[in-house]
Design a protein around this nucleic acid. Structure first.
Length: 705
DNA sequence: CTAGGGTTAG
């Protein structure tokens, strides 16, 4: 638009005043048309410090560090003396680009050249030191100042918050006699970020009562608070207020509203807000879409996508992503991170690979979030090698990234490797968090590494002072249980007073079944019954266990109880993805178009496998099989059907990947081992907890799962 | 000076 005005001014012979030129320049800068801005800038006769400042501050806003520095140098060479605005812009850029050295240089230059420090410039200096890690220096500057305005105070309140000194920050805030909106916003937002949500909430209510009126920042922060706490009662009235004020379509507020409704599980409402036409299109036929506005759109879309993910609606998440690309909204790192997690959740390797390739095409750097998400995606989609490859690309991983890698190894049954990586993380000086310990303990438990598990449990408590949570305790019970140390498991439960924890009892029950210990099984079941939390899984576990020990009466009693309570067990399902199509099977499924082929192939295969030593495992000890079902059903378990279909639909030598919604059963596990040997095929099964890689007649889990 | 969406386990 500015260039049209420019052309018109030239054509009309309008006086080429500096004021007009600077105004046009600022229009160009505002609409991000920097090519034209440069051209215009070069043509301004007798450009002054304001022209320089407009261009410099515009470029600083979009983070063109090098270009800004070059302009600044040229400016000095041409003998133009920068003013306080120019210097503030430069300092702000140093801040956002994290360039403390440059900031010090500029500060020195200001001092040497006797530039007047106005309050704003002093604040810029203060801010740069707070944010670039020279906090003590900033503190000294702050104490030495004669005049401090509330902005300086706000910078320091935020600064203390940033370095994690919540107390000091609150103290400064309380000492501030005049608290402006920004002070309130800073302290509330800071408290929220440091996990003091309740305090933040209290202050927000205080502010509503006695403080200054909310501004857009406050509304946005309040909505985020409502969203993190899933506080419907807080978000709703704020939504009303924002509607009354007519600011509901403003960027930050709109995106915060979308996120609020998503986190409260109200996707319908979120969609209503999402679909509002952004204001910019209402006011102008020829809209100037600035960076801020296109950014808002990306965030609105990404919020919606992550909302679907939060509500486990992966299909909708993907559809939204596809529309986002189709409408050329733009995809940033946040979006890719979320979509990668969708791929992880649905376990689609092909889709995951496409997302990874797409990211390489658009060139987003792998930051910690994206890196972890991709590691997790590859591991949950069955490719440990690719997970490792992504991990190697990160130069200095953080806790989450390390933990994702440890988790990947655990998931694929590589307990020793998981431990090795965990140790490496500690050696690199990265402090493991509670999740890291959950993961490493799970790895130990899956690999049957009792001693190592116990050591890590001690390490967590004594060295890292992390209080064991239910997850850690469950891992320990699992660890003892799987290692057939049932008495120790029971003792552990009693010592830690956790016999009321359903998850823990269920883990023990599962071990009782594994080791056929019906006495202990009874003890656990009684506890579970008492808690009224015997779900389908535990009912089946218990009744199966009775079956092994020929306690048919007890088994029947349990099944009756299940019927009475109307508990339905989850039907076992397996699926395989071939050429962008997902084929799902349940036990004895006849609905597939190629069912005849599948069954005849499967029956023939079972016959051939029996010749090399396979036989039905009649102990039907899975969670999803009831006792009365005979050999025929066992032969047609969903995983066998999915594998048979995979085998007849792919060329020999291709690995087969299938997924199951429950644990894989012992008989199928056995069957797959023999099949992998006879057919020379790699078969990869993802069950509800982990991966099984079958190759040359054995499984990566070492038959311990 | 202050604000929005993303990652690891269960």
């Amino acid at each position: 638009m500015a260039h049209i005005l420019h052309a018109k001014a030239v054509k009309d012979g309008t006086v080429w005043s500096l004021k007009l030129a600077n105004y046009l320049l600022s229009l160009c800068v505002k609409s991000q048309n920097f090519d034209y801005a440069h051209k215009l800038f070069d043509e301004i006769p007798g450009r002054d410090v304001r022209s320089w400042t407009i261009l410099i501050s515009g470029l600083a806003r979009i983070g063109s560090f090098r270009m800004v520095l070059e302009l600044f140098r040229t400016m000095l060479m041409e003998g133009v003396r920068p003013n306080q605005f120019t210097l503030s812009s430069l300092l702000r850029l140093c801040c956002s680009e994290n360039e403390p050295k440059m900031a010090k240089g500029i500060h020195g230059w200001i001092l040497r050249n006797g530039i007047d420090f106005d309050v704003a410039l002093e604040n810029s200096v203060l801010d740069v030191y707070v944010k670039c890690g020279a906090f003590h220096y900033a503190e000294r500057l702050f104490e030495r100042r004669k005049e401090t305005d509330t902005i300086a105070w706000n910078i320091m309140i935020g600064g203390h918050m940033r370095i994690g000194d919540v107390e000091k920050s609150l103290d400064l805030f309380s000492r501030l006699s005049f608290k402006d909106v920004a002070s309130w916003n800073t302290i509330i937002d800071g408290l929220m970020r440091k996990g003091y949500e309740r305090t933040a909430l209290e202050l927000l209510y205080q502010m509503a009562k006695n403080g200054p009126a909310f501004n857009e920042f406050t509304f946005s922060t309040a909505l985020v608070l409502a969203s993190t706490l899933s506080l419907w009662e807080l978000g709703r009235p704020i939504h009303s207020l924002v509607l009354i004020l007519g600011i509901h379509n403003k960027g930050f507020i709109r995106t915060s509203l979308i996120d609020f409704y998503c986190k409260c599980g109200e996707m319908e409402q979120a969609l209503v807000i999402f679909r509002k036409i952004p204001q910019v299109y209402l006011h102008s036929l020829n809209p100037i879409v600035t960076r801020d506005e296109s950014m808002t759109e990306i965030i609105a879309w990404s919020s919606l996508i992550s909302g679907f993910v939060h509500n486990n609606e992966y299909e909708d998440a993907l559809q939204t992503f596809i529309s986002m690309i189709r409408e050329h909204i733009g995809v940033d790192r946040f979006t890719v991170t979320t979509i990668a997690s969708v791929c992880a959740n649905i376990g689609s390797l092909t889709l995951g690979q496409q997302i990874h390739a797409y990211n390489q095409k658009i060139g987003h750097q792998l930051d910690f979030h994206l890196g972890s998400s991709l590691v997790d995606m590859y591991s949950k989609c069955g490719s440990l090698e690719d997970a490792r490859m992504i991990f190697k690309q990160a130069s200095s991983p953080n806790v989450v990234l390390w933990t994702s890698m440890v988790s990947a190894c655990a998931l694929h049954g590589q307990g020793r490797e998981a431990i090795r990586i965990f140790e490496l993380m500690i050696k690199e000086g990265v402090r493991p968090n509670e999740i890291s310990f959950t993961v490493v303990l799970t790895a130990c438990s899956h690999a049957g590494l009792l001693e190592e598990g116990c050591n890590y449990f001690q390490l967590m408590k004594e060295v890292y002072h992390i209080k064991p949570g239910v997850e850690h305790l469950t891992c320990m019970v699992d660890l003892y249980g799987r290692a057939c140390r049932l008495d120790e498991a029971k003792e552990f439960i009693q010592r830690n007073r956790i016999s009321n924890e359903t998850l823990i009892l269920k883990s023990l029950l599962s071990s009782c079944r594994l080791h056929k210990n019906i006495e202990m099984g009874n003890w656990v079941s009684e506890k579970l019954l008492h808690l009224e939390s015997l779900d389908a899984g535990s009912h089946v576990l218990f009744s199966n266990m009775c079956g092994i020990n020929h306690r048919w009466e007890e088994a029947a009693k349990m099944r009756n109880l299940m019927r009475q309570r109307g508990i339905n067990k989850l039907p076992g399902q397996s699926w395989i993805q071939l050429k962008n199509q997902v084929h799902t099977f349940v036990m004895g499924d006849r609905s597939h178009p190629r069912e005849a082929e599948i069954y005849s192939y499967l029956d023939e295969l079972i016959g051939r496998l029996k010749e090399i030593g396979y036989s039905y495992t009649t102990e039907q000890v899975t969670q999803d099989v009831e006792e009365e079902q005979g050999e025929l059903f066992l032969g047609h378990h969903s995983e066998k059907l999915a594998i048979a279909y995979g085998l007849i639909s792919t060329p020999s030598g291709t690995p087969i990947r299938i997924m199951k919604n429950l644990r894989v059963c012992i008989d199928c596990h056995n069957f797959i081992k023999y099949a992998s040997q006879l057919l020379g095929r790699e078969i990869i099964v993802r069950d509800i907890r982990r991966f099984h890689h079958f190759k040359h007649g054995s499984c990566s889990c070492g038959d311990y799962w």
